[in-house]
Design a protein around this nucleic acid. Sequence first.
DNA 1: TGTTCATTTCAGCAGAATTTCAGCATTAAT
DNA 2: ATTAATGCTGAAATTCTGCTGAAATGAACA
Lengths: 224, 224
Amino acid sequence: MRILVVEDEHRIAASIKKGLEQEKYAVDLAYTGTQGYDLASTEDYDLIVLDLMLPGMDGISISRELRKNKIHTPILMLTAKSQTQDKITGLDAGADDYLTKPFSFEELLARVRALLRRPKKIIDDVLHVADLTLYSKQYEVKRGRIPVRLSSKEFSLLQYLMRNKGQILSKEQITTHVWDYDADILPNTVEVYIRNLRNKIDSPFPQKKPLIQTVRGFGYRISG
Amino acid sequence: MRILVVEDEHRIAASIKKGLEQEKYAVDLAYTGTQGYDLASTEDYDLIVLDLMLPGMDGISISRELRKNKIHTPILMLTAKSQTQDKITGLDAGADDYLTKPFSFEELLARVRALLRRPKKIIDDVLHVADLTLYSKQYEVKRGRIPVRLSSKEFSLLQYLMRNKGQILSKEQITTHVWDYDADILPNTVEVYIRNLRNKIDSPFPQKKPLIQTVRGFGYRISG
DNA sequence: TGTTCATTTCAGCAGAATTTCAGCATTAAT
DNA sequence: ATTAATGCTGAAATTCTGCTGAAATGAACA
């Protein structure tokens, strides 16, 4: 799957690229509107992630021009504020979905997958690891029959771990996926949140095998 | 009997159309998800045959959106693989039956007939949560036997909460559902309306368990 | 025009969540 | 055994969220 990211803020662009590449997508970057438009109209992408405000040629114009030229690559528009008007104009211009900054990488990924129509992602509404269950829609987590109360960050982190159960996830991977792209998070923060999670899903059940494992030097993993 | 078939593979779509027309059904075709959704939400069909994988908008989203908008036309979902998980998700999303590809036309016909025979579901006019009752047509709300006077926004908000009872609804979800699409509403407005509702349906009944719950970091939920 | 009611915003507060910090513990490598 | 590096922990610092009383705005209507 090839994805083109058109975003003038290099830092954000780089962070998106990195995250998507970890998900095994092939990512090209463009930093200006014109460059983005040229690539989009000459190369064959599966998805275009398009910033609304760009030097050279703004996102809406690009979108409109591409559609006019019968290029129907799905477009995910990034907009700075939740300006309803922007959203409408963007969708009018041919964007397929939009995302309001700032967003966490998981949100971006969810939209990307939706646009690429991966049926896989539809499945993960309810996640299981051993007797731990996470209901994404209800924001509910249970160990066996016991409900577990989590804060929203704790919830996102657990969700990310469970979506990748059995896999070792580095602290860096965790921060790029669970936090907003512009969050400047110390690795220690992840450690603290891991501890919080353990205190809520492992420590209260000493008779059960702990689910969250530390893999020294690499990261963390959840498995049953 | 009017049937809408949403299927991107033209060959399959044409074949279904032909077969159904031989059975004296009136058949419309849509080749993309968005087109399908538009037709389904504006025209009055007796049945929708919906492919799961579609360009533009997948079957599950269409299904979910239609149900959300109180369109209860029976849906027969066509799925490529016999993924149980897909089926469950599909049923959750409001589909009434399934058919796994590839199928014979006779199988399809059997399901179509079964679904058309079913008595039409009655739309939920009267909503209940514990002893709270909301009469949509009458714009009337009662806690037990006591009538409660609500403003129109309060009413819409309560209706939305009750239609999704037990589910956590974020402030953003609430604003997009209860307010006009172009309303630019602060999250605080939702907070204020929640307070108003509480003052009318919970606070006056201190002996009863409050129905509206805050789930910090996620949103609000009504449940009995 | 004024009055009333509904709607929306504002500003301040309290408490919760998030993040950092500094010291300690554990591990792996010499 | 010594030493870095890495991870863990309690607690403090900071930021964020939700709640609230009250004010501003808007709409309906006499």
